[in-house]
Design a protein around this nucleic acid. Structure first.
Lengths: 216, 216
DNA sequence: GTCTATAACCGGATAGAC
DNA sequence: GTCTATCCGGTTATAGAC
């Protein structure tokens, strides 16, 4: 029923749909999936629950639309400069730059960040509607990041005895963990600073030359 | 109403209470707080919802009891050997030992681990019943860990230019983040191994002598 | 200490009017 | 495209019997 556009920017009539998605992000962030209610989301949009279900056939459909849309936008944004068109040629240094840039952007939208934090925890349960989404997401992230480090090992920038997959999993853990602490205290916790310090120390330890990162 | 024992081990009549707590852990782990229901918890215990509310006056009371009890047990367990009686004399090396020991224990109880992951994310919302609990918990963890590193700086084991609070926050982030990935895939993700590798690299970077960690 | 019964309310989804 | 009405079920908490 929701008029799926082929891809890319939306036609004028989809502004309502977009407003629903934005509102749903806030609610899922605050309450997680189960405790959010379509009626309250609809109320904040300014329509009724029945009206909302005209755009998304079910609550689960709404959740997966929110997740998919967010990721797609992020991906497009990360690669919007540096001439990076796809992820298969990124080096470790380029990954670090892109990751810091994305995390800095994320500090401007606490709702979205909290939504991913809450849902990635909830979705560990195999029956959760977003379980498959997060399983695939983590697999893809590990693949992308470990690929970047593998390329930098091959080119001699990084020591050949490091395990790219282990490094990728550790980096993802740091980002996820920092998000939790930042969500609990967005005004005082320096998420970008902590991540920068972590990357700096990591690279100093595993690069062949001992070049660090430019200062924050 | 629940017969609060002064502290320590429980009298015989509290076995029912303990069974409720154990069952509640599993439910909160699977569904988070909001989506768990007293009736289903009671059903798994083998009593009715009314019977459950005889032991805990409300759902929120049950949640906070579960959180408090778990932490208290963990704390007692961590300090059960090594002669560590309280946290005010722990060094960085002792912290690492204790943390690895606790994480290893945690791999044997996925339910409890998932509960903390889900709730620490959910509880970022100021109105959440466990918000105060997690705020205080993180503050206490940062205090304990940064204290340990500060002592090791004072004694000359760790370089004086490191920021103990920043290190503490990073360590907590790594542990939290590893928990997320492990919860999503408990059988294949090597949580202890990753944490060990992280600590090893961290200590190699910030200790004055370049002694690492004993192998996993 | 546990039960049943009930109050008072909220959940998602569907049907059909306009 | 949005609304109202409705179905059916689930939620916490209380009251009172045994």
């Amino acid at each position: 029923m929701p008029p799926r556009k082929p891809r890319g920017s939306y036609a004028v009539g989809d502004e309502r749909r977009q407003r629903i998605l934005d509102t749903a992000v806030e609610h899922f962030a605050r309450n997680g999936y189960h405790a959010s209610s379509l009626a309250r989301i609809a109320h904040d949009v300014g329509i009724t629950q029945g009206g909302l279900l005209h755009h998304f056939r079910s609550k689960e459909d709404l959740l997966l639309s929110v997740l998919g849309e967010s990721e797609e936008r992020d991906r497009a944004w990360v690669f919007s400069d540096d001439g990076l068109t796809d992820t298969r040629q990124v080096t470790a240094a380029q990954h670090v730059t892109a990751a810091l840039k994305l995390v800095a952007l994320n500090t401007t939208r606490p709702g979205l960040v909290r939504m991913f934090t809450v849902l990635s925890a909830e979705a560990a349960e195999p029956g959760h509607p977003a379980h498959a989404f997060f399983t695939q997401r983590y697999a893809r992230l590990v693949g992308n990041i470990s690929g970047a480090f593998r390329r930098s090992i091959d080119s001699g920038e990084i020591r050949p005895d490091v395990d790219p997959v282990a490094i990728a999993e550790e980096i993802i853990a740091v980002m996820d963990g920092l998000r939790i602490q930042w969500s609990l205290n967005p005004d005082q916790f320096d998420m970008v600073g902590r991540l920068h310090a972590y990357y700096d120390r990591l690279l100093r330890t595993i690069t062949t030359s001992e070049t660090g990162l430019p200062p924050a």
